[in-house]
């Protein structure tokens, strides 16, 4: 009779006393007449309407004011980090491209001219419109070459413009390196 699905966490069968019926609350007089409650609601909205202070505190006038972000964890536009010699830190291992759930990263790797690694990316495109800013690429990267920056003013007038190539991503790094330093610059020694 009693199968697994009807057993409680304690291992015994459900009884009537375990069932909790949640009642709708009874309506009071003013709720039944409806109008007093309407005025109650309007009191609340009117209070907010005439409270300038709340507005001043809460509203960010965007292009003039910027939001205060927690820069370490904010996930905005990507950047491609440079190593200490100013070269692109990426080793074209394709980990980020594999990890990306939105398939927005496209890498083409070629043999590296430098002795310290085998490959480097000749092409590194990120479709910022497709990206869902989940940060998986950042976590997948073995050399911390790709990172998400706190920049969120991401605008463009065409789709092509929003596909960021290697140069653009490196420029983002140059722009944001003071704001958010590279996470582990010395971990691989590149």
């Amino acid at each position: 009779m009693v199968n697994e699905t009807t057993q409680s966490a304690a291992g015994r069968a459900w009884t009537e006393t375990d069932v909790v019926y949640v009642d709708q609350p009874e309506l009071t007089m003013s709720e039944r007449l409806y109008l007093p409650q309407v005025f109650g609601g309007m009191k609340t909205t009117l209070r907010h309407m005439f409270k300038m202070r709340l507005r001043k505190e809460k509203v960010v006038q965007y292009p003039e004011q910027k939001r205060q972000l927690r820069k370490e964890i904010y996930r905005g536009v990507h950047r491609l980090n440079r190593d200490d010699q100013g070269r692109v830190a990426c080793v074209a291992c394709f980990m980020c491209e594999t990890a990306c759930p939105a398939h927005c990263i496209h890498i083409e790797g070629v043999e590296s001219p430098w002795p310290d690694r085998e490959k480097y990316p000749i092409k590194f495109d990120i479709d910022e419109l497709r990206c869902i800013y989940c940060g998986m690429c950042e976590e997948a990267c073995p050399v911390d070459a790709i990172e998400l920056t706190p920049e969120y003013h991401l605008v463009g007038s065409s789709r092509d413009e929003m596909i960021f190539d290697k140069e653009k991503l490196l420029m983002v790094y140059d722009r944001t390196k003071d704001e958010k330093p590279r996470k582990n610059p010395m971990i691989t020694g590149y």
Binding site: D18, V22, D23, P25
Partner: peptide, 12 residues
């Protein structure tokens, strides 16, 4: 029957 059987919980 709703309520009054077993425990009845006030929703608010």
């Amino acid at each position: 029957p709703r309520g009054e059987v077993g425990k009845t919980v006030d929703p608010f």
